[in-house]
């Protein structure tokens, strides 16, 4: 089981801040494909990966990163702090 977190407009589009996902996905990209296949709201949120960022266990990663051993995946738009 992986904890999947969503922030900002990704959270709004999917309609929840976090969920537990039972997934055998090997990479982030595979997880995105699994989620996108679920429902339109996921497919809409993940339509353009270039406009998204991903963090694995609270460190920025890329979409080809492996998920082995990862407990927490977060998807969000580019950050706008400061």
């Amino acid at each position: 089981m992986i904890d999947v977190l969503y922030f900002a407009w990704v959270r709004e589009r999917i309609g929840l801040p976090r969920e537990r996902v039972d997934s055998q996905a090997a990479t982030v990209r595979d997880l995105v494909a699994e989620l996108s296949a679920r429902e339109d709201r996921y497919a809409a949120a993940f339509a353009d990966l270039a406009s998204l960022r991903v963090a694995l266990d609270q460190d920025l990663a890329d979409f080809d990163a492996p998920l082995a051993g990862v407990r927490e995946v977060a998807f969000f738009p580019p950050m706008t702090g400061g």
Binding site: F7, A8, M79, T80, G81, G82
Partner: peptide, 8 residues
């Protein structure tokens, strides 16, 4: 902070 700290 602008681009690498997770604030939106």
């Amino acid at each position: 902070l602008k681009s690498r700290a997770p604030f939106w």
